[in-house]
Nucleic acid binder design. Structure first.
Length: 321
DNA sequence: CTGGTCTCCTGATCGC
DNA sequence: TGCGATCAGGAGACCA
């Protein structure tokens, strides 16, 4: 029993209300020791609409009102990794890939993968022994170790994506921009060079840069003192370099914080998620800027709440052609 | 091709 | 106390 508790306690739910790159990376790191080398003894799918498989209708499967245990046609048990051995966990942007090898794979190389996309409210965590999957549990994997991992997502913006070959996963990820955690000045400059739209919109586009969401976009722009509506391609290279550095440092700090959350949680004091990112602008509209004390501005940009400091992030002057 | 808008979904919060 | 309205947001569909 003690062993069970130890395993369970070290696979915590993610800490942030909205999983972005740091939360996914923390999740990946926390899952590694439990999943690597393990085989999937059984997998169960409760909602077909969270799964995206080759050949599915464009726009995804019809939304399902009620939860049910499924043995869906056109999906083999192997698609959910049943019987496969987990070889590695990879991340690109906010996507987490479970890479596995089927028992009778023709080569020793991994031959399939499952991408977990957490969306807004998704999580991947251990189901405590004795607990039953609740209404928001959409998939459940039982490992040969006895550990049960669930995909939990109340709002169902998340998804599971099936890949029957590693080449297909590579192709899927090739459509994403460079990973934000290690973005270089040159790569960010190249990614934004032809973007004639507000920098905030470009940063949120995963095909431009993979891993930045609404929270970190605002935080990085604040740190780099760039106005969110500045046209991306018109931002001077020096400022783009500052922005790249801001993105890297903010994300890296948040990944570290995820690690500290892990340790806090292992203390079993119930204070899981005690780390709350010290946001400078996100969620602080109208409050004083932490640098100049001006009230922070806010507006809707690309359908997203956007907060910035009108003094620290001055609106760029329109440059004539 | 690019970029802007709509839509999916449900828990939390707010006003009356 | 209750209940309806509103909001939040990732990313794919869709359209100009």
């Amino acid at each position: 029993m003690a062993r069970w508790l130890l395993i369970f306690a070290s696979v915590p739910p993610i800490s942030s209300p909205v999983p972005e790159l740091p939360e996914v990376e923390s999740l990946r790191l926390s899952l590694l020791p439990h999943l690597l080398g393990r085989s999937v003894a059984a997998a169960r799918l409760y909602r077909r609409d969270v799964l995206i498989a080759p050949g599915d209708p464009p726009g995804g499967f019809p939304r399902q009102r009620n939860r049910a245990t499924l043995r869906p046609k056109r999906i083999s048990p192997a698609d959910l990794l049943t019987g496969a051995a987990i070889v590695s966990l990879a991340r690109r942007g906010k996507q987490l890939a479970i890479i596995a090898r089927s028992p009778r794979a023709p080569t020793p190389e991994p031959d399939r993968a499952l991408i977990v996309q957490l969306g807004m409210t998704g999580s991947l965590d251990a189901l405590a022994p004795g607990d039953k999957p609740d209404a928001h549990t959409h998939a459940l994997w039982s490992l040969d170790s006895g550990l049960r991992i669930r995909f939990h997502d109340p709002r169902r913006f998340g998804s599971l994506r099936v890949f029957r070959a590693i080449a297909d996963l590579d192709a899927h990820w090739a459509a994403l921009g460079p990973d934000a955690l290690t973005i270089t000045d040159a790569d960010l400059h190249a990614a934004l060079a032809r973007a004639r739209r507000p920098i905030k919109a470009a940063l949120l586009d995963q095909s431009v840069l993979a891993g930045v969401g609404n929270i970190y976009a605002d935080e990085a722009l604040f740190l780099a003192r760039i106005h969110p509506t500045a046209i991306a391609a018109g931002i001077p290279p020096a400022n783009i370099a500052t922005l790249a550095a801001a993105i890297r440092s903010i994300l890296a700090a948040a990944v570290q914080a995820g690690g500290s959350t892990l340790r806090d949680y292992a203390d079993a004091n119930g204070a899981q998620g005690t780390y709350v990112a010290s946001h400078r602008v996100y969620g602080r509209a109208g409050l004083p800027c932490t640098i100049c004390r001006s009230p922070l501005s806010h507006a809707l940009l690309v359908q997203r709440t956007t907060v910035w400091c009108p003094r620290c992030q001055p609106r760029p002057r329109i440059r004539p052609h």
